[in-house]
Design a protein around this nucleic acid. Structure first.
Lengths: 235, 235
DNA sequence: AATTTTATTATGTCGTACATAATAAAGTAT
DNA sequence: ATACTTTATTATGTACGACATAATAAAATT
């Protein structure tokens, strides 16, 4: 008995499965600077021989890398290293029904933080035509009375456009993932405090500030605009 | 020939591989609200029979779900639905050598945006002992002359503590992933403009504001504190 | 009743075989 | 000789069957 325990201790870190270890080896290989994006890695069978495991294990390990977006594999050509779309795969796990309440709330917060903090990016990259587009969007800003779906779509159009303007594609993708979760948290009973109907700075107001104001002003205005949401977080 | 074209058209969307479709079915199953975290899904062989494909395909699809953190599978017990650690797997692709330059820059920006925008979370959750801890950290704030590693560690300690205070574990994990990339971008020749040595608001200054100021003040202070970084982005 | 031993079960690993798609090579017609 | 078509080749995709291994349940022993 003690012997087994000792053996277990000695094995120690090596508690991972075979596929785990192979995966680690491969990730190591990819990150080894020698290899750049576009390079291809050995064929499955070759890898199986080199590492000394079956093709099945190699395939499972490669599959993980593929799922993570580290490689792409084409028939005949083998697997090539790709510049991973870091948030590409995340979208599947970013599902309201699968996340626990705390994480949901945190994702909710994350969006607020991003939008309050993005001001400098906006001011440094906004173009005249962006302002025009924003004006067109706010032109038919719905009243509170109109139906919810319409309001939601308008929200998404406006705030989404801001992410576009930020010129940060990564952040934009991130936002697209956060959106459904945000909506869910907003609508579900997760946040105890009801959504206030008070009107703060409008989308129109934000555009005005974006055109004539400063990043500092915009941050405060956005914070104000989002106050309904913030207020629900902090009781 | 025309017939083949028509067939291709008819197949249309179904261009995905078999595993892709099975994966989609399974994700659908997981998200169907009926199932909660902790529930177990049918065995591999059962799934193979139900869906009508080989166990190999089922395994590959399940493996993807596992890689994404949607399920965990234990011997004998089968696979159970888990609350996914949304950023868990992301860390493997968040590697400077695997990301293209543009994405690297965007990740760099992402950190700045988060820290400028996180003020409200801080003010609503900070405790007296947090202030004390921050004071202890800034107490031995290194001078510029001291070695780089020491400076970097101090930076990480201070800003990391801020994320802790934010009470947003998701954001904290996110930051931990962004950190190495941020460091890399900062040190590599990616950003043309050299890092300025000008001194802006110090960590000490940030703590003072955190203790006696407002979220609005903190946002501006943090923006100022990070100005070296911002300045390198916008020429 | 508690502990150990044995059976069972579902995933993990392996090997083989063939299908399929992408490419390269060979062949054919103009 | 060039352009096109056809035929091989190659590496991944899919499938099946077999055994190993670990976790649990059932049985047996004390």
């Amino acid at each position: 008995m003690a012997v087994e325990l000792i053996q277990e201790k000695l094995k120690g870190i090596e508690t991972n499965s075979l596929v785990d270890r192979v995966e680690a080896r491969l990730v190591e290989l990819l990150q080894s600077r020698q290899l750049k994006v576009g390079d291809s890695i050995p064929k499955e069978i070759e890898l199986a021989e080199i590492i000394g495991v079956s093709r099945t294990v190699i395939r499972e390990a490669l599959l993980r890398l593929r799922t993570m977006g580290l490689i792409e594999s084409r028939k005949k050509k083998g697997a090539v290293i790709t510049s991973p779309d870091i948030f590409g795969n995340l979208s599947k796990s970013m599902n309201p029904y699968l996340l626990d309440d705390n994480t949901l709330r945190e994702v909710f917060e994350l969006r607020l933080v991003l939008e309050v903090g993005m001001a400098d990016l906006l001011y440094n990259r906004i173009q005249k035509k962006d302002i025009e587009e924003l004006r067109k969007i706010v032109q038919d800003e719905p009243t509170d009375a109109e139906n919810r779906i319409f309001n939601v779509n308008h929200e998404i159009a406006f705030h989404g456009k801001l992410y576009d303007i930020s010129g940060n594609e990564t952040m934009r993708k991130f936002q697209k993932m956060l959106l459904p979760v945000f909506e869910y948290v907003h609508e579900s009973g997760l946040l105890k405090k009801p959504a206030s109907r008070k009107k703060f700075i409008s989308h129109r107001g934000l555009v005005d500030i974006l055109e004539n104001g400063s990043p500092e002003m915009f941050r405060n205005a956005m914070r104000n605009h989002l106050d309904n949401h913030f207020a629900r977080l902090f009781e």
